[in-house]
Design a protein around this nucleic acid. Structure first.
Lengths: 319, 319
DNA sequence: TTGTATGCGTTATCAG
DNA sequence: CTGATAACGCATACAA
């Protein structure tokens, strides 16, 4: 592999000069610049970027931690991040964690090792305190509401959003309302749970723990949800479903089972994904790509900020 | 940042010894090893991985070129790749190209620059000859049938698969058969086109160019497809849809429009995604994750191989 | 079993 | 405008 030293020899200049033309620095006589350029052409030269990274102490690489790459939600989030990365001349390195903590730690390590300049954690399972320990090695940005002012974040106020949706269902006459979650843990889930708790307290509704159905990520999970509420003596009349994918699965399964929506079961999905529009599912729109965009911008910015995004109820036919 | 030099001083050994304990080399006296280990703990030392990369000339990084991250097909493919990467202690760097050639070139450049050890191209728009020029810088593996024996690849025989599906529809009595594609270009699309051409020749069916509908990637594209065939004087009675997403969109739109499936329009999807199962769509199963797995293994192996994967017709209710 | 010296390919400082 | 030379942090051949 030819390096700048070789180029320098070929062009009869010093390595510094070669480096200068490589980096478009001023103060290089046109004549020498051309000589270097010619040498570059001649031997099909290419920078060794690792050397650049070592020398500069930066990699133009941003890490992205996300549990699954095959969930539409994260696919869209990644898209938003990737588009900005492209625009700002950064590359992305992906940590698919499956919510295994050690994999998140690996990402944190990479930050410390300077393989990445900053880290975006789309969803985490590890402790917040642990993350803070790594803050000194580079910006870390989260996708959840966080109190610590040292941590950047872009998020949706899930408490408020959930409460709005619940109120909406209440106004429509529903008194037995259940909801589905992905994980039981995680900030967003906790916010939703506490919104629900406050909601049933507010209206003095009975607290039925069966109404909380967890582990709902995929389309396929929809049938399970329906089956489990069918098994209840007093099934909910409405469901808040925190993923349009799952909501779609529910709609399809109900069609199969001749369960009338919304008459027998009302539904509000989340995200406003294409599938929700297609199936006419009432949903809460989350600006996912926009969130991704913000996450990236926060990752490469010095100032740490906290951005709250708006979610919007889209009324369609399932309530 | 403390480096091995500092550690050496602290532990009263040489940098080589430090390096040895860091890399678990034998021939280090336990006493010194412990001294080094203590120094590491003491100053919270972390390797600068860029230096390792530069020194070794390897990065344990594999590049993945893919057009979109938000299409389920690529999400699943990425999942298959990512799981293997994890297992083999590699990291992935993602190039989302939107089928823009310059972005593919960037990935190729990274290979040349030694930022990545090898490159997986899930779908390309650039010339094959161009790719070959970069072969000397590291393994490149494709996800399409390729003649060049210098290029590794895992792929589905789309000609054969398409032909089988067409024959199946023919046996079911269909004579006016159309199909949808993502892009018009690309090896896979070409194979399908030539299968179709041979098919209509074989059975002496009329060649209706309107029956080829391109630009179909997403769920939402389903309605367009139906609208366009509704506008035809002689619409196809069956459609081969190269994405279950689009097929699902078609099914949903047809339900809306009271178009009976399969009586008025028969459908075969592709990939056997969850949504196909959910909606009872007859489809061609593609082992996407398995393909991803192979792609990765080929990327880190020296020998270049070519792996053909089997696709399988799953009969459900849309034919 | 250990240490010295050198290389990896750049960038950056500083003197000219 | 140009060129030495010292970082950057680690791995490793070779000598001891």
């Amino acid at each position: 592999m030819t390096n700048i030293k070789d180029l320098a020899k070929m062009a009869n200049v010093s390595v510094s000069t070669v480096s200068r033309v490589l980096n478009n620095h001023p103060y290089v006589k046109e004549e020498k610049r051309l000589a270097v350029l010619e040498a570059i052409k001649k031997c099909n030269y290419q920078q060794n970027i690792n050397a650049v990274h070592l020398s500069k102490g930066k990699t133009q690489l941003v890490g992205v931690v996300l549990p699954f790459t095959d969930l539409p939600y994260f696919g869209q989030l990644l898209k938003g991040i990737a588009n900005q990365a492209l625009e700002h001349n950064y590359k992305l390195i992906i940590f698919q964690t499956n919510y295994i903590e050690s994999r998140e730690l690996e990402a944190l390590q990479m930050l410390k090792q300077k393989q990445i300049d900053s880290l975006i954690i789309c969803s985490r399972t590890c402790n917040l305190a642990l993350i803070q320990e790594y803050l000194s090695y580079g910006p870390i940005v989260l996708c959840e509401k966080v109190e610590d002012t040292h941590l950047a974040a872009t998020f949706v106020n899930h408490y408020q959003t959930f409460m709005k949706a619940l109120d909406y269902l209440y106004e429509k006459g529903h008194r037995r309302i259940g909801y589905t979650l992905g994980r039981k843990t995680g900030t967003n889930s906790h916010e939703r749970q506490s919104a629900y708790a406050d909601f049933i307290k507010k209206y003095q509704l009975p607290n039925n723990p069966d109404y909380i159905i967890t582990g709902c990520y995929h389309l396929e999970d929809g049938s399970q949800v329906v089956q489990s509420i069918q098994a209840m003596s007093e099934p909910p009349s409405a469901l808040l479903v925190t993923s349009d994918q799952v909501a779609a699965g529910i709609v399809a399964y109900c069609q199969n089972q001749q369960i009338a929506i919304p008459d027998e079961l009302a539904l509000i999905g989340f995200d406003n994904q294409p599938i929700a529009k297609m199936l006419g599912i009432t949903t809460i729109e989350i600006p996912i790509e926009e969130i991704g965009k913000n996450l990236f911008l926060q990752a490469i910015n010095e100032e740490i900020s906290s951005i709250e995004m708006e979610a919007k109820l889209i009324e369609r036919g399932t309530v």
